[in-house]
């Protein structure tokens, strides 16, 4: 699912340098699964920060709390009480950007800083090794491209076949990266459905993108006035 990676240590220091009473919030969902921001990583970061400030001779209280899922208010567990009791100057979060924004919205009196970068929607290749598979463009074409995402895999995110730089199945940006369109072609050919990429599809509307809201299939009635 969502893959996060811890920010550079200096950047985290930069954010929290002026605060003394800080809460570090981890997430037990995707961030924990990708070994990026679960309870263990929160503990590691806190210990590193503690040692850093101890060496500098500054006194800072950095507490830790891990919620079940930061992207759903109902899964915050005891977080509101923890924040109320702790009287914190700042919150650092180790959940994805979505969770961070929900926490920032719910506790909008306190500055919230992410301690991780939300990298990608990806898959688990191995322990601690993840591969980006999706950029959430909102217009999935992998049905036509043999299950290989050209947006993610092609360096230029080309929709309609390879550029002129494809070289023996490799990308011109870096000769170690395989060309996505080369792989798409091969896979479709193997499955005998090359006509899928020859079909003409309507262009994607990239311009003027506004924040997307997902109203799930079958739930439209709750949120959208269907009669209008």
């Amino acid at each position: 699912m969502i893959k996060v990676k811890r920010k550079k240590f200096d950047e985290i220091i930069d954010c929290i340098d002026r605060y003394n009473n800080i809460l570090n919030v981890g997430c037990g969902g995707c961030a924990s699964v990708c070994l990026g921001g679960g309870q263990k990583e929160v503990g590691i970061l806190n210990e590193e920060l503690r040692l850093y400030y101890e060496k500098k001779g500054e006194k800072k209280d950095i507490d830790a709390y891990t919620v079940e899922r930061a992207c759903n208010e109902k899964c915050f567990l005891d977080l509101p009480n923890v924040i109320e009791k702790g009287n914190y100057d700042a919150i650092i979060t180790m959940c994805c950007s979505a969770g961070t924004q929900l926490i920032a919205e719910k506790f909008n009196k306190i500055p919230v800083y992410p301690a991780v970068d939300t990298i990608a929607i990806g898959i688990d290749r191995d322990i601690g090794l993840y591969e980006e598979k999706c950029r959430a463009c909102g217009h999935c074409v992998i049905g036509y491209t043999g299950g290989i995402c050209p947006i993610t895999r092609c360096a230029k995110s080309l929709f309609n076949g390879p550029c002129g730089g494809t070289n023996k199945g490799m990308c011109e940006v870096n000769p170690n990266i395989p060309c996505a369109w080369y792989e798409i072609y091969n896979r479709l050919k193997e499955q005998n459905r090359l006509e899928d990429i020859k079909k003409i599809h309507p262009p994607v509307d990239w311009k003027n993108q506004i924040q997307r809201t997902v109203v799930q299939y079958g739930y439209e009635e709750r949120y959208v006035n269907m009669d209008v």
Partner: peptide, 8 residues
Amino acid sequence: PSCFLYRA
């Protein structure tokens, strides 16, 4: 203690 729900 490795389970965050246990601690929470």
